[in-house]
Design a protein around this nucleic acid. Structure first.
Lengths: 153, 153
DNA sequence: CGCATTGTCGACTGTTACAGTCGAGATATG
DNA sequence: CATATCTCGACTGTAACAGTCGACAATGCG
């Protein structure tokens, strides 16, 4: 239970933006409606993603947000890192600055925590907004659209 | 950053107990010293592990704690579950009672969160106290003990 | 029995993270 | 100028977490 609600909201919004394919900006208000999140949260989180270069914004009437890169170039790993920091389950297993273990006898646990960290990173790295958008479209295409071809008489 | 400090302490103590091989009970005070944790925390956490059947205790002088099963029969997965609950990174991806997603368009994220959950579970399931004890011993064996054989003249 | 040693339990405090709200301001359009 | 939109920082309430403490129960020993 360690993906915060904000991260959940933010990633939902990004999927919604990916589905929009960047044709034109989407308003915070619309994103909030589609993803069922409080507007005020998106007002906090989207600027954060903006200054990290994930999305781009336009002000004024007909303004809004759009992705700043192709969906396949934005990984969940990057997004979660921006919003939550290190992906390690515990401070002694962070990749960059692992906090030294204070246990007297050799603490073998950090190896396992590092395994968890690496597995998590691997999954989130290979999952891009394109992956998610495709999955999402798959779920919402109607049976008709999905049917490859009508059985020939 | 989601393995709580308590869980860290508790797992350390269990590794220390596994190293002791259950010959005779180890006092909370000793465990605290070896694992560098506050005694008062172990006084909270060990009873919890006790009522879950992981460890067994004896009171009175020469009392203390010992493992209730062979180290290879106690997985980290079990322990973390007892101390922290579900292993899913988010409530919509818990195995037993996944909280329904409120997003209007198909939210494809839960699949990825479930992947993370499953990878985590797999790692923690195959890591037992025996694994950890062995690793820990490995770290503390002296180079002499480790050297397979002295180069023959 | 009486005492020391050990585990057991619940109440308590202080701190931090998180969720969410709000209002004042900046920028673009027309 | 008026309106629609993003921007930013301050603020509140709640819950989880870390850690402490004191009273109590059981065991072993003389």
């Amino acid at each position: 239970m360690w993906i915060s609600r904000r991260t959940d909201y933010a990633t939902r919004a990004l999927v919604a933006l990916a589905l929009e394919a960047g044709e034109r900006p989407v308003k915070i208000h619309d994103l909030a409606a589609r993803t069922d999140t409080p507007v005020s949260i998106l007002e906090q989180v989207l600027p954060q993603l903006r200054s990290a270069g994930i999305v781009r914004s336009e002000r004024g009437p007909s303004g809004g947000y759009r992705l700043n890169h192709a969906p396949e170039d934005i990984s969940l790993e990057r997004v979660v890192r921006i919003l939550q920091g290190p992906l390690a389950p515990i401070a002694c297993a962070t990749r960059s600055e692992p906090e030294p273990c204070t246990m007297l006898e050799g603490c073998a646990l950090n190896e396992t925590w590092a395994e968890v960290r690496d597995a998590t990173i691997a999954i989130l790295e290979r999952t891009t907004l394109a992956t998610l958008a495709a999955r999402s479209r798959g779920r919402w295409t109607t049976p008709v659209e999905l049917a490859p071809r009508a059985p020939a008489g």
